[in-house]
């Protein structure tokens, strides 16, 4: 199956800014069950993006806009082919835990098996692990499936409860959150079991219009757990399902901090307002037909002005060796 995706991001600044530098992680990955066939990023004011692959093999586009501007618009268009993922067995033998420990011993996926900025064990998380019986009583795959469903029930989907940089404790305490919170909580719980686990940001093509849970238009987040012989397996606790052909992955990382769709800095004292719109169009062929896009949703998100610290305090941050 092919998906045409058009992802529009607009930054509106309260006053003109200059020297914008931005990194963009929007190109769908070409690995696992998907392949990005075409990708194009347009920037207005006009700028020519360069790209590189980061240490997690995500494609990062970056550009700079030196001149003054009050508005910055990105239009990312892509066509991606997605196959049905591997069919998983109903269960694994208990000895699969030995393989989990072996993988850990080798530290091959060290970053994905250790705490990260947004996915770390806190007293609240450990209490939740107890409450949901997250332990090794059954084989790893069964435990992961159960946890996926248990979290779906334990946390209520709510767009207002958390922010983009909320720690997992906020979601655990209020039992409310969005896909990012479901994912961070589950990643921390899965890593706590010793299973390497990583954050995935991408798009979810909805079954029907507007009834499904994903944040900021159709950009969505879920996670992948690593099991020997099966590789990275996608779980979507926000929707209580295993990832399938509707999940289109753009970037993977330890948590959200590694893979925001845009990350940038600019010069000037201004606040910025972010608007995002995503349209996903499924086809049977890799052509890009603009006419019957489904408009999934649009959302805006206020970014607060950052108070700039004083020069001397920052210069003293530099430690002497």
């Amino acid at each position: 199956m092919f998906f045409s995706i058009r992802h529009v991001t607009r930054f509106q600044y309260s006053a003109p800014v200059s020297e914008s530098n931005m990194e963009v992680r929007m190109r769908p990955r070409s690995d696992g069950n998907q392949r990005c066939i075409r990708f194009d990023l347009q920037v207005n004011p006009r700028s020519k993006p360069n790209s590189y692959k980061d240490h997690n093999a995500n494609t990062v586009h970056y550009f700079d806009v030196p001149a003054q501007h009050a508005k910055l618009t990105l239009v990312a268009s892509s066509v991606t082919e997605v196959d049905e993922p591997e069919v998983l067995p109903a269960a694994l033998p208990m000895s699969a835990w030995d393989e989990v420990d072996e993988v850990n011993e080798g530290a091959e996926h060290w970053e994905m098996q250790n705490p990260s900025l947004f996915a770390k064990p806190t007293p609240l998380l450990l209490a939740l692990a107890k409450e949901l019986n997250v332990d090794r009583r059954e084989d790893p795959l069964t435990i992961l499936r159960q946890l996926n469903g248990d979290l779906f029930k334990a946390i209520e989907y709510s767009q207002k409860a958390t922010r983009v940089d909320s720690p997992i404790d906020d979601a655990i305490r209020s039992r409310k959150g969005v896909c990012q919170d479901y994912s961070h909580v589950m990643i921390a719980l899965v890593r706590n079991l010793g299973i390497p686990c990583r954050y995935v940001s991408g798009y979810l093509y909805p079954k029907t219009k507007l009834e499904e849970r994903s944040a900021l238009g159709a950009t969505h987040a879920w996670l992948e757990a690593y099991l020997h012989n099966h590789g990275w397996i996608g779980f979507d606790p926000t929707n209580n399902e295993l990832c399938g052909v509707r999940h289109i992955r753009t970037a993977v990382g330890t948590d959200y901090a590694d893979v925001p769709p845009t990350r940038g800095v600019f010069k000037g004292r201004a606040s910025s307002q972010l608007s995002v719109a995503v349209r996903i169009h499924p086809t049977d062929s890799p052509t890009d037909e603009e006419d019957d896009f489904i408009s999934v949703a649009a959302a805006t998100n206020d970014i607060q002005e950052v108070e700039i610290p004083t020069w001397d305090a920052l210069q003293q941050q530099q430690q002497q060796q």
Partner: peptide
């Protein structure tokens, strides 16, 4: 003579104003 953390706010500590974006 600036540590990694502060050298580029785009790639490392975003709150660093000592560095050079990009």
């Amino acid at each position: 003579r600036i540590d990694d953390d502060f050298i580029d706010p785009l790639s490392f500590r975003p709150d660093s104003i000592l560095g050079v974006p990009g």
